[in-house]
């Protein structure tokens, strides 16, 4: 076992896969220096032909990724900020997502779209989003949002080996987190949620950094409410069975997600819970999400992004409320 940070766990996964498979390469802006560290050191190990510093051209970077994937490679496309997926919407949403389906399953598009995501640093509306719901709403893409170093490493290896385009959004606030990582290889399959805390009164379904808020809230409330925290880890595929199993046990659920509330991840999960476990619910499904406005920067950010108090209040409300007979 060794202790690795979140970013280091991701870079180690990429390095291991590049060593294992010569068709894996990294392409993006500043990937050799890697301002968000996840591809740092790779150029020294694999050379500039496999760690390609590209022009500031999101369309060409994402397009080259899709084309090379169709032609037999497994590119990792570093979008830098996950928000920049909007720049390359044609390439990611229309081409990567749809080429396999629209051409009768003849040509795979195995690639990873890597993006640093989320708020917490006051970076404003174009550098703080987690465009999760949009990705979920484009069939053909997979979506991974790890919350811990251990998960990040195992999920990255699965993402690279997947035969589909996978959006891998890692959270800025998780970057310094450290965890013991096994020396031997491990892979975490996509679509398997992880119960990060076992409880019996309220289920909190969370994603990415929101898992840590949920765990903190659960700890603060542990004397009065027993909270179960489910970390989805990947949103596509979605481990709905894990959610339903927990909801059947607790009867109360709060979905905590950092993406915008309207038509968001929580809305989808709430609907699926209602369709599958309505009779088990003792309270309405609650949600804590980013407010329906652009993500404000600097001191105003916290009025848009879910905060600990909101999560805690939502759990307390869910625990205390109920349908009247």
């Amino acid at each position: 076992m060794k202790e690795l940070s979140y970013w280091n766990a991701i870079s180690e996964a990429i390095a291991e896969e590049m060593k294992r498979d010569e068709t894996v390469f990294v392409i993006g802006e500043n990937v050799q220096e890697s301002p968000f560290l996840v591809t740092k050191g790779l150029v020294q190990q694999f050379g500039p032909d496999r760690v390609m510093d590209a022009p500031l051209s999101e369309l060409a970077i994402a397009g080259a990724t899709v084309g090379a994937a169709m032609a037999g490679y497994r590119p990792i496309c570093d979008l830098t900020f996950a928000d920049f997926i909007y720049c390359a919407a044609d390439e990611v949403l229309m081409k990567a997502a749809q080429q396999y389906f629209s051409h009768n399953a003849k040509v795979n598009v195995p690639c990873v779209f890597l993006g640093v995501a989320g708020a917490g640093f006051g970076n404003g509306p174009e550098h703080s989003r987690i465009p999760a719901a949009m990705v979920m709403n484009n069939p053909g893409l997979k979506l991974v949002m790890p919350s811990t170093p251990y998960d990040a490493k195992g999920l990255m290896k699965a993402a690279i080996r997947d035969n589909n385009p996978v959006c891998f959004f890692f959270h800025k606030k998780c970057m310094p987190m450290k965890q013991e990582i096994p020396d031997e290889e491990y892979i975490i399959p996509l679509g398997v949620a992880d119960v990060k805390r076992v409880g019996s009164d309220v289920t909190v379904v969370a994603t990415s950094y929101m898992v840590h808020l949920a765990l903190e809230a659960a700890k603060n409330l542990e004397d009065i409410i027993s909270v179960e925290v489910i970390d989805l880890r990947s949103l596509v595929p979605l481990d709905i069975d894990a959610i339903i199993t927990s909801v059947k046990k607790t009867g109360r659920v709060v979905v905590v997600d950092e993406d915008t509330e309207c038509c968001g991840v929580a809305a989808e999960i709430g609907q699926q819970i209602m369709e599958r476990a309505f009779d088990y619910l003792d309270a309405p499904v609650a949600r804590v999400c980013a407010a329906n406005m652009p993500i404000a920067g600097a001191a105003m950010e916290k009025y848009v992004i879910p905060q600990l108090a909101q999560v805690q209040n939502a759990i307390e409300a869910a625990a205390g409320s109920g349908f009247s007979a």
């Binding site: 390469f25 032909d49 369309l59 060409a60 994402a62 397009g63 080259a64 990724t65 899709v66 084309g67 090379a68 994937a69 169709m70 032609a71 037999g72 490679y73 590119p75 044609d90 390439e91 229309m94 081409k95 080429q99 629209s102 051409h103 003849k106 040509v107």
Partner: peptide, 25 residues
């Protein structure tokens, strides 16, 4: 012919990807 898109001009960047794969190979 690995496939086409239907937004005009999007072939430019996909062809860069095909060519990149060809160069690597």
């Amino acid at each position: 012919i690995l496939g086409v898109g239907a937004t005009i001009g999007s072939g430019f960047v996909l062809s860069v990807g095909f060519a990149l794969a060809a160069k690597k190979r």
